[in-house]
Every structure is written in structure tokens, then in C-alpha cells.
Amino acid sequence: MQTFFVGLDIGGTSGRLILEDTSGQSLGTYTSPGCTLNVSGYEESRLRYRELVLHALAAAGLEPAGCRGICVAASGIDTPEQAEQCRKIFLEMGFADESLRIVNDCEVFLVGRTQPAAILVAGTGSIAMARGSRGDIVRKGGWGQLLSDEGSAFHIGLQVLRAIGDHMDGRLSCPILYDLVSAQQSFPDTVALNTFAMEHICDKPAIAGLARLADQAAAEGDAIAAHILLKSADDLYAILRDALQALPIRDLENVQVLLWGSVLVHCAPVAARVRQRLRADFSLRAEYPAGSALEESLRVARSSADRS
């Protein structure tokens, strides 16, 4: 039986999986629609996880029993109970308990680090975590789109819908943003716009998908879109600031700050604003991780196997 490692990065919009044999040879990468345990619930998450994992293993001709190490880095792993729910899903698929490592998809970047580090992630949702020199991790934000997720793609998309509504209502003017949204989704009146928002308030990817239009409109000179991005950047920075301030002062001198997620990677104005405020308040610079969340999960899978 062939032995292998598995890394998973499962967010609200998409799920990604990578396979590698024990000699370091890639056995393929796979994608699927995403989910989050805290929003999608157990049954839908179970279905999504199984679709991704079992399809990938079948395509590669592998069996769960051959897995030496697997790291599941997933959005929505917010409590020990949710971690156990996730573990149950993978045990049911046939993975050995000792091979499993379950972490939040933000935490995966901090696992195994020896120096103080902090990471701000802004994708479909948002969250910040910081790890002190003693290894304890603090978390700020990331409690779902109704309570937090400030500055995330969902949050930006929601502000886009509100701006479009105000534009249609004659309360402000954002013609560039309005035209971009209308080209993608036609809203004949504010009633239709409100219906769309209400029907999709728990469909994070549908609303998060509008975030890129704010970036495009801002680049084309739409002042309202630019304001949305600026405010979102400040909201994101506040999460990161609070995580950093939870660290001991001695750790702040050597802390490594990382930025990740589609908003911070692909939306230059947001990332630039976060970096600017970080330098002004802490004299710290932020960088992108050397590897993606998927690559980090594979690293953790390997290292967990080495320690077992």
C-alpha cells in the first residue's frame, strides 16, 4: 500500500487538497466548493469534505489507511467541539486518529514556529491570530459574517450592495460601481436589490464575489468604492492591532507579521493601508508567507508524522 501525506485548506468559498508521497513527490492537487463548520453546519461540511477527499484519493489510487499524516486547515474550526466534529468526519472516511491534525485555517501558519508571529487573514471572512514566544496563541475576530468578519470579501461585498442601494435611492453617487455590479447582476429596483441581499445573507461566496468589483471601481476612479476599501482596510488593521497588543511587550520587538487571503493578496489598496498603519503604530513590516495555506497544511502534516 502506497504511503502519503495530505494537506487541506478549506475556506468558505473553496476547498483545496494536496497529496504527496513520503519521498516528497507530488501526487496531485484538487479543488471543490468550500464550507465552514460554524456557518454551513456539520452535515453540509461532512458532504463537502467527503466529496473533496474521497474524489482525490480515488483519482490518485490511494486508500486512507496509507496516510502517514494529514492536516485539515479549515475555516470555522473555532472550538474544541468543532475540531472533534471535523475529526469524526475524517475518522469515518478511514483515516487513523494518530495521523490527523485539525487546525483553524489561520492557525496553520503559526503551527511549529519558534519566534513570535502574527497573521491577518482576509478572504471570504477575516481573522487575526498571534503566537507568543511561549507558544500560546491569541485570536481576534473570525466569528462569522453576522458578528465579525470585518474587512473581509463578504464585508466589502455587503458594503457594495448598500452603496448600490443608496445610489439607486439617490442618496449618493457611485456610477462606476453601479455599472460594474449591474453588468454582473441586474437589479431593476431597490426591492429586487433587497430581496437578493436577504436571500444571500448566509451565502458568503455570493456576496463576497462582489468585493472584486469594489477594487475595480476604485481603480477606475469611483470615490465611494475607494472609501469602502479604505474603511475595510482600517477594520482589518484593528483586528491585527488587537492581536498584537495581546502579546507580551518583549515579543513585539521580534514578531513576524504575515498577511494572507484573497483581499490582502489581490486588493493592493487594502494591503497597502494595513501595512502603512502597522509601520506607523508598531514600526513593523508585514510580509506574505513563503507558502500558501495549502502548502503550510502539508508542512504540518509532515511534521506531525515525524513527531508521532
Rank of each mutant, 00 (worst) to 15 (best):
G135D: 07
G261K: 04
E44C: 09
S186Y: 13
S262F: 11
A238K: 14
L147A: 10
D9P: 03
A293H: 06
Q245L: 08
T3E: 05
V255C: 06
L57M: 02
A219V: 02
Q216M: 14
G221T: 07
L258W: 13
H55F: 10
R285P: 15
P175N: 10
L19V: 11
L298K: 04
G209C: 07
G94F: 02
Q184I: 10
S14W: 14
A65G: 06
V39P: 11
G11C: 05
L120K: 01
S304E: 11
A56Q: 02
G34P: 15
D242F: 09
L54V: 06
T22L: 08
C202K: 03
P269N: 03
S152M: 04
E287W: 05
C86M: 14
A293W: 07
A219Y: 10
W260D: 15
E81K: 13
D203Y: 00
S182N: 07
S303P: 14
M168A: 15
S26R: 10
G170V: 07
I201H: 00
D105H: 05
D179S: 14
N38V: 07
I119W: 09
E253Y: 04
E84R: 04
G132H: 03
I70F: 03
R277T: 14
L177C: 05
W143R: 03
V6F: 00
I239D: 13
S126F: 05
L284M: 10
A225Q: 06
G69Y: 01
D242C: 09
V108H: 02
A60L: 03
Q216L: 06
I119D: 01
V53I: 11
T22A: 10
Q25T: 10
R68M: 02
V39A: 06
T22F: 14
A183Q: 12
Q216W: 14
V121R: 02
D306V: 15
G11Y: 02
L146W: 10
D234S: 13
A65F: 10
T124C: 07
V108I: 07
P116M: 08
V274E: 12
L110P: 03
R241L: 13
L19R: 04
V72R: 01
F4N: 01
A246P: 09
L294Y: 08
L278D: 11
E63Q: 11
S45D: 05
R16W: 04
L37Q: 05
D189C: 04
A218R: 07
E220H: 02
V72G: 01
A226T: 12
S126C: 11
R250L: 12
A183P: 08
R277F: 13
T3I: 14
F95C: 08
L37K: 07
Q82K: 04
A197V: 00
V274T: 13
P80M: 06
T36D: 14
R16K: 08
G125I: 09
Q276A: 10
T29P: 02
Q276V: 12
G11S: 05
Q245M: 12
V53F: 05
T22M: 09
I89Q: 14
A153K: 02
Y288Q: 08
G144N: 08
L210C: 04
P64I: 05
